[in-house]
Amino acid sequence: METYLITLLSNQQPRRQRVIENILMNRRTLTTLFWGSRYGILSWLGSNRQLEREHFDAMLKQMKQDGLIEIKNQFILLTVQGQACKQQFSEQHYVPRHEQQYLKYNLNAGWPRLLLAGQVVSEFSYENIKYAPISFEDHELRYVKQWFNNNKSEQFVKNFKQEVNEFLLTLSETEAQFFTELLVGHDSPGLSIDQLTTKLSIPLIDGEVMATDLMVGIMEFAHCHQTLLKQLFQDLKLESPISHSGYITYQLFQDQYSIEQIEQMRHLKLSTIREHLLEAAIFDGVNFPYDRLLTDRQLKALAVQYTGNIDDWQFKMVTDDKNLDFFDFRLYQIMRGMQNE
């Protein structure tokens, strides 16, 4: 994933170093989500949870030394050379196709689920019951076992193979080869991403990104047409990218409850409810009912108060309720940002 970092940077918009780091590591504060959305990099949320700050900073240091970026007050901007490098990067590296769908799925659980299911079907097809499953997680084992028991029939192996085959037909030869070699089966443990990228002579980072992208690809595919695969991935499709608690608040709000009512119903602080709604606005974009929270009069006042580049707006207090003022400001900022897109 390392050099993909350059694709998260811009030569026009200085981007906060820690926001990018937090996005990769899935540190979901409202500030991170807001700026992640401003930078258009939210789909990378949680894509590198094991990232260590030391390592991240070292990558930036290297890029700076190579003349690709400038860092001022923790804001990163691509240099002319960096911009050229970014463009070249997309030409030379794997370009994800399903990036827009990443937030719809529980990405980390996809491969472990498919590998285990593939192994179960493969061993079943060779009539072997004594083998070491690739997963150690009781929940995963139970889920796949139930899926297997619900579908076991004479045609099971054939149907499963057929569904996977149909998905593979939508891929390039390299992608299909990459995908099948990762799978684990009877008497054939498959290859690691590291081994596979060496054999295919592609960079390791491309393999990592490809693995994620193809996983989202098969989950999308499964939800559109298939039965066995659809059932297999059913619970990995998220109800929403919004945090669980935020989602509950947003649903109540959409059911026409007011902020005050939700505050009472959920026994949460007012400021928490407001944060939930801002999070919902960030993820729901233009579909968020802004007009229920910002009146025409407020909008007119805000339009006078805040002008110019949205990223440069400085929050100003207008009443003596700082929390409310900030909420209105940020919501307006999100709304305008979405409209501009």
Partner: peptide
């Protein structure tokens, strides 16, 4: 074998029908 086989043949080996 150091050469990878085609994905079709890999699929055939994985899921014996």
């Amino acid at each position: 074998e150091n050469e990878l086989k085609s994905w079709q043949s890999r699929l055939g080996k994985l899921f014996f029908v």
